[in-house]
Design a protein around this nucleic acid. Structure first.
Length: 440
RNA sequence: GGAGAAAUGGCAGAGUGGUCGAAUGCGGCAGUCUUGAAAACUGUUGAGGGUCACACCUCCGGGGGUUCGAAUCCCUCUUUCUCCGCCA
């Protein structure tokens, strides 16, 4: 449906079953070509990696044989002592001194090179799926679907931040007082509508087979590296330095890390989770009119879906997730479109991403409300999230996630598109969750 | 926050300086038996690096140290449990 034919899926799965050193070593050229879609010249990066890799292996080999020799001597010494030949044993002991020195040196060298290699590897972004269009900016994203009527609003219709004030449902100034800009306070029916949306989304997700999880809102450094926020997005996360913890920018981080280091049985797949969490983002560098109101916040609520999949099934899973989100927006009767992100706009960790955007009628612009991605083995490789295949071999799993959905812009879309001269109508599906059908 | 105990393979649980990547049991897998299943019996069963394949190397919570040699001894950190204190 979305241009991921089964042939390309199979190819992708095989080609990247073990993305990283093996793959880089054997497919250097094709990786460089693929990364050009991200407008990256990967050649220097990769040759540095290959260089360090070669160095690492040669030091490792040398170290291994030194250790092998000293292991052998130690065993002999043990046997000699046991059989009472203390003098011969002591003679052998002297021979080990040099080996010890050598292995210490080699060990230090190895650590250094291995760390440098790790750092270099962490800087390489995921390889875009072949369906990812070339391009530099969001202008080059490819619209692949749209649905829903854009309503014609009455004269004097307002953007959501005006509506929020008019009906006293969101107080941005109050948030500034107690915290700062970008931390709104939801009041009365506004707060209730938030809670209704969270419940509604979670219900939709659990009905679709996702298991609801409540996870910590802070994570440690290892989790940040696992899903790829670190080191790439270091400055975008709130860092609690006293305890070296990060406030989560999305539930993707704690939920996907649930399986960090696991080796699953093939029959455990697929794993499907959903979770509601607040999300914290520093948004360093954002500015201008597009950050008004709910458009861009430091703290916002989101319900996320996460899947761990068999490589042969991950693109079908991606399509299912897209269909699932479509369904929700259809029920909310919001006009939306789906974009396939171009190489330049694609996130660091993703192989293929579909963005959902709701049309904000009063602002006359599209607002991103969901991002659904397949990471293939990229996160799994960092997470060491694997499964045993039918031959008993350990393979990297594929991970995926998507918002279903991010609250603030859905809220903005509802407020703006559902406004009437008599107040804001509540979408039908949300009325049972809200306990009211109009905000006035 | 204070005092004590502990951390070993999917799980349980031995192992206190040498041939231990690690007994044993359970679980898993394969086979024998069976129409099939269960039971019983036999075999097999951690991860990573390295190699064409072997060899070989690393890993017994993390890091460091002692030693020719560490799962075993020492230091340190983390986590868990018990008791005390505090507390939504």
């Amino acid at each position: 449906m979305l241009g991921t034919s089964s042939d390309s899926i199979k190819f992708a799965a095989q080609n990247r079953a073990m993305l990283q050193l093996h793959t880089i070593r054997e497919n250097t050229e094709s990786i460089i070509t693929a990364l050009q879609k991200r407008n990256i010249d990967a050649e220097p990066m990769l040759s540095k990696v290959l260089d360090l890799d070669e160095k690492r292996r040669s030091i490792q080999t040398e170290l291994d044989s030194t250790l092998a020799e000293s292991n052998k001597l130690s065993k002999e010494i043990g046997i000699l002592f046991k059989s009472g030949k203390a003098q011969e044993a002591n003679e052998l002991k002297e021979k080990t001194a040099g080996l010890k020195e050598t292995s210490k040196q080699l060990g230090d060298e190895l650590n250094e090179v291995a760390a440098a290699l790790q750092d270099a590897l962490y800087l390489i972004p995921n390889i875009p799926h072949e369906s990812v269009p070339a391009g530099n900016t969001d202008e080059d994203n490819e619209e692949i679907y749209n649905e829903g009527e854009v309503p014609t609003l009455f004269e004097g219709a307002l953007p959501h931040w005006e509506l929020a004030k008019k009906y006293d449902i969101i107080d941005f100034e109050l948030g500034v007082k107690i915290t700062g800009a970008g931390f709104p306070v939801y009041k009365g029916k506004g707060a209730r509508l938030q809670r209704a949306l969270i419940s509604y989304f979670l219900d939709k997700n659990t009905q679709a087979g996702y298991t609801e999880m409540q996870v910590p809102h802070m994570v440690n450094e290892a989790s940040g590296y696992g899903t790829g926020q670190l080191p790439d997005k270091e400055g975008q996360m709130y860092h609690v330095q006293a305890d070296d913890l990060y406030l989560i920018p999305t539930a993707e981080v704690p939920v996907t890390n649930l399986h960090r280091g696991d080796i699953l049985a093939e029959s455990d797949l697929p794993i499907k989770y959903t979770g509601y969490t607040p999300c914290f983002r520093r948004e360093a560098g954002s500015y201008g009119a597009h950050v008004r109101g709910l458009n861009r916040l430091h703290q916002f609520d989101k319900v996320e879906i996460v899947r761990v999949e068999h490589p042969t099934n991950s693109y079908q899973a991606l399509d299912e997730m897209v269909e699932h989100v479509k369904n929700i927006l259809r029920e909310l009767k919001l006009p939306y479109r789906i974009l396939r992100l171009c190489g330049g706009d694609l996130g660091f960790t993703s192989a293929l991403t579909y963005d959902f955007e709701v049309f904000s009628t009063a602002q006359d612009r599209w607002l991103e409300i969901s991002s659904v991605s397949n990471f293939e083995t990229f996160q799994a490789n960092r997470l060491k999230l694997r499964y045993k295949d039918e031959n008993g071999k350990t393979q990297l799993a594929h991970t995926l996630n998507g918002s279903s959905l991010a609250l603030p812009r859905v809220l903005a879309g509802i407020l703006e598109n559902y406004q009437t001269e008599d107040g804001i109508k509540i979408p039908e599906v949300l009325v049972p969750y809200c306990g009211f059908d109009t905000i006035n």
